[in-house]
């Protein structure tokens, strides 16, 4: 999962979307599904970190009303 750290927000989000559609496609083997799921979770975290970071920066300057 290390490499997912370098991903940009958009890359992580798009890969997450791909994983979801693969899982929903139902063609993946159990082993693949497990791996996909794990990667999906990691990517989701990356996205959330990006968003939380951005929000924090914004709030630092302008606490949301």
């Amino acid at each position: 999962m290390a490499e997912s750290k370098k991903l940009s927000y958009e890359e992580a989000r798009d890969q997450l979307a791909e994983i979801v559609s693969k899982l929903e496609g139902g063609q993946a083997t159990l082993e693949e599904s497990l791996a996909l799921w794990e990667k999906g979770e990691a990517l989701a975290k990356v996205c959330q970190d990006w968003l939380d970071g951005a929000k924090a920066k914004l709030d630092a300057i302008r606490p949301t009303e």
């Binding site: 927000y9 989000r13 979307a17 979801v20 899982l23 799921w37 979770e41 996205c47 968003l51």
Partner: peptide
């Protein structure tokens, strides 16, 4: 907007 999008993904049953 992006937050909602991610939440939507996470809401999908597979995740």
């Amino acid at each position: 907007f992006e937050r909602a999008k991610i939440a939507a993904y996470l809401d999908r049953p597979v995740l």
